[in-house]
Amino acid sequence: MTGLMVNICLLALLVIIVVMVMRTHRLFAVVVLSGAYSLICAVVFVNLDAVDVAFTEAAVGAGISTVLFLAALAVLPANEKQPPGAHTLTSNLAALVIVVIVGGLLIHAAFDLPALGDPNAPAQVHVAPRYLVESDEVLNIPNVVTTVLASYRGFDTLGETIVVFTAGLGVFVLLCGATRTARHTATKDERQGSGRDEG
């Protein structure tokens, strides 16, 4: 019962943080709020028995991604520009209509989901019992999440590593490309002097 109350309060806190993110125009505050959001998510994960996910979220979601955002903000402008009133109203209205329709449909569908914590829900009865029974006997590793991640679903993890590698390569190419193009254009300008065509 206490767990349920804690759960309800923490999730309400998440909604409050998201509303603050929407209303703030200083990007530094937005980034720090999203760090706090990740950290509270991690606490919710502990409460829902997902300890491995919780410490990954705390380290990667609240740690690394906040650091990445802050590093980017060192170069980018610190404030969001507020466009003039009339324009925001129409663009927000369109977004609001889409969001309310999609959200309404999802909430309608959510009432058909099995209740939270139902041990006979379809998600609980398929492969998970096998993992829980076999993990300790066959592989001698007590942490089932580790067994599934590295053994039963090892190829998933290989795929994840490939995705992360590709993303790292992409970041490298994008950032190096930026400085190289700048330098290239600068030298070309020097060479051609003022003879460069417009457009």
């Binding site: 829902l48 028995d49 997902a50 300890v51 939270l116 914590g117 139902d118 041990p119 609980q124 829980l132 993990s135 300790d136 007590p142 942490n143 089932v144 999440v145």
Partner: peptide, 10 residues
Amino acid sequence: KVAGGTAPII
């Protein structure tokens, strides 16, 4: 989440 359950560490 399973009601009354704990973290999946045997």
